[in-house]
Design a protein around this nucleic acid. Structure first.
Lengths: 146, 146
DNA sequence: GTCGGTCTGTCAAGCTTTTGACATGAAAGA
DNA sequence: TCTTTCATGTCAAAAGCTTGACAGACCGAC
């Protein structure tokens, strides 16, 4: 018989969730010594790549609500890692930016996370990595276009 | 130049998270009419495939803590979807099982979720699906073996 | 047999996130 | 121009989940 049913699509969903969960766990392991949670790291990382980004856009990239991102930013602001202009922006926006100490911290955290990701893919050939990226992108885009 | 850096491993982590997030969203969309959350569905599904499973094992499969799974089970129990034996088990375990109405509900929910998963992979050939499954499994197992 | 380790279930407290709602500011369209 | 629409930021309440801790029950090693 053909094995089309051996790779049930719904099984793939569980596999994606399992991979994401264990990756999240490993990231948390290496970020904890830096006093950072995974969402906090994602926030600082996005802020590093796109300085002056808005809080709402930040929330979208970190896959959380605006409100959650706001309390997250308040915490980072209290620790002197993020600065937000108090005066209004063009569309009531308050641009956020990293401080110098945050930039150094992000550099360190980034290296740790990259090591985890590298370990995750250490059994894959370069071509496999490229294909995995392409396949996942296809799945994601297919779900995005309702 | 070689393109080894074009597929940075850490970029893959974000892609996995993005795919899982949007899949979670779509699952929530189809489960909401059934009055089920994604964790609740995962719980019922696992209980359907493995009747008499323990609460802790259930928590592991749903990627939540024992305590969270317990409150989740209390809710399902109150709705008459799950039954747990009150008398002790071999290792203080209380085996949980689905009721008849829950079995019918799971069958319905399963079909809806399967449709979402099928749509997610509708742009992939059968061979691609098999390979995606293999690649993701490799990544997950690599992270599991610390 | 006994002791240490492990797993289960449960209680309590705390934190994080979501949901719902509102006012403000700006762009798009009639 | 006026209005409709939309996005941001923020407040308040609620839900969900995690962490830490404890007792009961089994298992294996000694």
């Amino acid at each position: 018989m053909k094995d089309g049913s051996l790779t049930a699509p719904e099984e793939l969903g569980v596999l994606i969730k399992a991979t994401q969960a264990i990756l999240h766990q490993r990231m948390d392991d290496v970020l904890r010594p830096l006093e950072l949670s995974v969402p906090q790291y994602a926030c600082l990382q996005a802020l590093h790549d796109s300085p002056g980004i808005t809080s709402s856009e930040l929330a979208r990239r970190a896959f959380v609500s605006r409100q959650a991102m706001n309390v997250l930013l308040l915490g980072l602001e209290a620790r002197g890692l993020v600065e937000r202009s108090d005066d209004p922006g063009p569309r009531r926006e308050r641009a956020a930016a990293l401080t110098a100490t945050a930039t150094a911290l992000v550099r360190h955290a980034r290296a740790e996370v990259a090591a985890v990701a590298a370990r995750m893919t250490s059994d894959l050939a370069a071509a496999d990595l490229i294909q995995l990226r392409a396949l996942l992108t296809t799945c994601r885009d297919r779900l995005l276009t309702l």
